[in-house]
C-alpha cells in the first residue's frame, strides 16, 4: 500500500455565480473510509457527484489509479470508460434505494445485472452468486425472486449495497446511506457496512450529516461549510478535539440521550 487510490487536487464546482464546492484537495488510500460531513447546502453532495463523475467540475482534477495501476484523470475518461468504471470498479449507494435499484425486476436480477453487464452468460452462476450476496447482506434466500417494491426500506438499502458490491469494486460512494431509516435499522445497517468494508478492503467515501455514522464507519473525515473544507483529519481527532468553531458547534449539537 504505497500509493493512494484517488488523488483530488483543487476541485471546484460552481453553478453560475453560486458556488457548489471550492478548492477541495485530498487523497484516499486503499481500504480507507472517508466521511464528508456538514450541514445541508454545505456542498458535500456536489463534491460527491463530482468525484463520482456524475457532475463535471468547473476546475481542478481528480486522478484515479485504475486496476492496471495507471493513473487517469477522471474527467479525461471517455463516457464509455466512465460508465464501465461505474459498473465494475466503483459502486454508488444512493440515499433513496429506488434511485439505485431497478424496482420492477426481482432482487436476484438486481444483483445479477452488473455481472451480466460485464459478460456473464451462465444463469446458474449468476443465480448462485446472487444468493451468496443476498446472504451476505442478510436477505433471506427465498426473497430472491421478489421485486424490491415488496421490500422494507432497510432491506432495499441492503439490496442496493449487494448490487453494488457483486463485481468487487475497489471504491464505493455512499450518499447518506442510512438516511430515512429508523434508528434500530440504521444501527444494523451501519454494522453490516462496517463488516463488509473491512472484509473486502473497500475504500469508501461517505457523505452524511449524521456524525454518529461518521464516527462508526470512517477512518478520516472532512468537515464542509459553505462549499469549503474547513477541517479534516482522523475521525476520532476531529470529533473529540474539534478545532474550528463550526466543527465545535456541530459536535456539541449532537443530542445526548
Amino acid at each position: 500500500m504505497t500509493q493512494p487510490l484517488l488523488r483530488v487536487h483543487r476541485l471546484s464546482k460552481s453553478y453560475g455565480a453560486r458556488m457548489g464546492c471550492a478548492d477541495v484537495s485530498f487523497e484516499l488510500w486503499p481500504g480507507e473510509v472517508l466521511a464528508i460531513v456538514g450541514e445541508s447546502g454545505s456542498g458535500k453532495t456536489t463534491l460527491l457527484n463530482c468525484l463520482s463523475t456524475r457532475l463535471e467540475p468547473s476546475s481542478g482534477l481528480a486522478e484515479y489509479r485504475m486496476r492496471d495501476a495507471v493513473w487517469r484523470n477522471l474527467y479525461d475518461l471517455s463516457e464509455a470508460e466512465r460508465r464501465f468504471l461505474m459498473r465494475t470498479d466503483w459502486g454508488f449507494v444512493h440515499q433513496n434505494p429506488a434511485d439505485g435499484l431497478r424496482m420492477t425486476v426481482s432482487a436476484g436480477a438486481n444483483v445479477g445485472e452488473r455481472m451480466m453487464a460485464v459478460g456473464s452468460r451462465h444463469y446458474g452462476t449468476i443465480r448462485s452468486t446472487a444468493i451468496e450476496w443476498l446472504g451476505r447482506v442478510e436477505i433471506a434466500e427465498d426473497r430472491i425472486d421478489d421485486e424490491p417494491r415488496s421490500f422494507s426500506g432497510g432491506m432495499r438499502q441492503r439490496l442496493q449495497i449487494a448490487r453494488n458490491l457483486v463485481t468487487h469494486p475497489r471504491l464505493v460512494f455512499m450518499d447518506e446511506p442510512t438516511g430515512g431509516l429508523d434508528v434500530s435499522v440504521q444501527a444494523r445497517l451501519l454494522d453490516l457496512i462496517r463488516g463488509l468494508v473491512a472484509d473486502l478492503g473497500l475504500s469508501a467515501i461517505i457523505v452524511t450529516h449524521d456524525l454518529a455514522v461518521a464516527r462508526l464507519l470512517s477512518h478520516r473525515m472532512m468537515v464542509m461549510k459553505g462549499g469549503h473544507v474547513i477541517e479534516q483529519g482522523l475521525t476520532d481527532r476531529v470529533l473529540d478535539d474539534p478545532r474550528e468553531p463550526y466543527t465545535q458547534l456541530l459536535v456539541s449539537s449532537i443530542l445526548q440521550v
Binding site: E79, R83, R102, V105, S106, G112, A117, Y123, R127, D145
Partner: peptide, 22 residues
Amino acid sequence: RKMHALEEYGLMHVKLYEDIAR
C-alpha cells in the same frame, strides 16, 4: 440510445434472467 452506442446490453439479459427465475 447511449446503451446502443456503448454496446451496453447487460440489461437485455436481465429480462431473460427474469423469465427463467419466474
